[in-house]
Design a protein around this nucleic acid. Structure first.
Lengths: 191, 191, 191, 191
DNA sequence: CATGAATGAGGGTTCATTCAT
DNA sequence: TATGAATGAACCCTCATTCAT
């Protein structure tokens, strides 16, 4: 009977624990020792689960990208009107602000390392993108890719502004504004 | 008499030339040798102008933040209606897409290194923020900070989506959509 | 299970092996690479055992200062008269000439680097000093600090003269001279 | 008319000003920039007067070794008895303690660098040695090389003890002790 | 003569990675 | 499996030295 019941699960555990470190320092500035230390394992063990720093990072990104968006979006369900949805979205952003900022750091880091190499791995990016598009459509209740992109961009931008240290930003206020704009826009479109 | 060099101007020249490299590789993954090589100087010379990699990077960020936003935004002037403004904005983004993506990489890298240290330097961030807010108001023709933030977030988000490799995004289409939404929204507000 | 190494003992082994190099070249002129090479390890290994060149050197000094003086002086025991003691001392110096010269180089280097910094570490110096004083008293068979200092100074000076390249110096002759002087002096004091 | 009346004199001025720096930091740890700065000239100027750091140092040593010993020893003249001479010697050491310590640092550094290279330059050492021997004979009033070496060693040793941080040492007391010992010794020899 | 910008080899130190245990 | 000692290339940075002005 091995000590660790599930090799793969332990691997994922290590990945999720290394998330913060990569987000805070950036890929190029974290060392394998630091990671090992923060995971309370030896470097040898780290290399037992991941063949290289590069791969570790890529698996981390993949892990993030596979976290089920729909599950998260369940929180936004049960809302009837667009207005309610947007308010819920605002609250959701506020609640997970830290996570989203870290998430943004990691993705940006990942892309920064991708475009200097083969963009083969971009499949993970593209796949993630699709799911976010779909999620946006669900939230909006409209199957319009342009509008979905609009929503995603806006949300990304809000996070980015926060990441840049603008503490005056009010996610809820902003989302409410978006809600109003969407409503009058869609209304207008129908007429 | 020493070699005649305008020390400060040369320094700025080196800074602007190092922009691309930092954007492509990220702070932690660029080496001083690479920078020196891409600037066609020796490492010694690099250190003659910058006391450390850290400082070089910080000065680069400062340099970027001091590039005159208003001059750039002059391009958007001469537009009469909001609709025209937004279309112009879209074209502007398309034209400078590469620059904005690099610009985003650099700022994100900068923030990533800041928050592990004293956030004292955030003055440069805050200052830059203010100017972007003002620029947004100018473009909108409305002095509403919430709306300005809305616009900025949206634009940031668009860039970010592009940065993430979504090549399907159409800046012009998105900006036109934003234009429409703003119009009906502002109209509705008046009534 | 890791490689089994007696970390501390190996550290001391490395220290004693680096003694010659520091003595020959001087602190500021030895490189860590040279040290590593002469110890037949990699620089990485060197840094595994010592956090810095500075600390390596300081530990070397400490190691030297802890070498048991009394054990060495046992050689001088078994002598009955002052005259015999001094002759023994002379032979002792001749036998260990090389070591004492190196020893002097190292201590001088150490002091040279101390006085530009906090003299906190001087504890090691003071402690060593005391033990040498005591050893001098033992050799003299007299508990007179002034006389002890006299002896120590003389011995130090002899080494120093040798260090300076004076090959004509004859330790035994000099020590015999010292012996005579001490004898007539002590005799005279009694009368 | 050149700015500097006498090239050679200016060179010596630079040398004597660099004395302290070499003494404090040690040959291997001083940089040409530091020297230039402390001399308030540019590195270029430094190299105008000295072809290399090595040569600068060697010339410094030579300069030291050529400082007229006899002139300095004039202070000890006018003493009648050995006892008086020794007391004068003690005062002389006290007065010039700092200088002698620095002097020792420099010489030790010099030797440290010599023995790893060709000992050709030892001529300067040998020459200096001879003059010190002669000076010692003068002070003693006896033309005995062994006794001269004895005196020199003792004085060297006193300085060395001070250099090592032993602040309890009393040069005058020690020299007086030496005086007594010499007296009874010489007296005894005659009988 | 004097300056200080420029160089690039080399210094101290770190790091991803390997491997004996 | 798990460990951490070991490696050496590569990192950031410094230095003696050169040379255009």
């Amino acid at each position: 009977m091995p000590k660790i019941v599930d090799h793969d699960q332990y691997r994922k555990e290590l990945l999720s624990k290394s998330f913060d470190l990569f987000a805070q320092k950036g890929y190029g500035s974290v060392t394998m020792r630091q990671i090992a230390q923060s995971l309370a394992v030896s470097t040898g063990t780290l290399y037992h689960y991941f063949p290289s720093k590069q791969v570790l990072f890529e698996q981390l990104v993949e892990e993030i990208s596979q976290q089920d968006v729909s599950a998260a979006l369940a929180e936004l369900e049960g809302t009837q009107t667009l207005s309610e949805s947007m308010t819920a979205l605002g609250r959701y952003l506020v609640k997970n602000e830290d996570y989203f900022i870290k998430w943004t750091y990691i993705w940006v880091n990942f892309c920064q390392h991708q475009d200097s190499k083969t963009m083969l791995n971009s499949s993970v990016l593209k796949h993630a993108n699709k799911r976010y598009q779909q999620a946006a459509c669900n939230v909006l209740g409209v199957e319009d890719p342009v509008l979905a992109t609009f929503l995603l961009s806006f949300v990304n931008g809000l996070i980015l502004e926060k990441l840049w240290g603008d503490e005056t930003i009010d996610f809820i206020e902003q989302c409410r504004l978006l809600g109003k704009m969407l409503m009058v826009y869609l209304q207008d479109k129908i007429n």
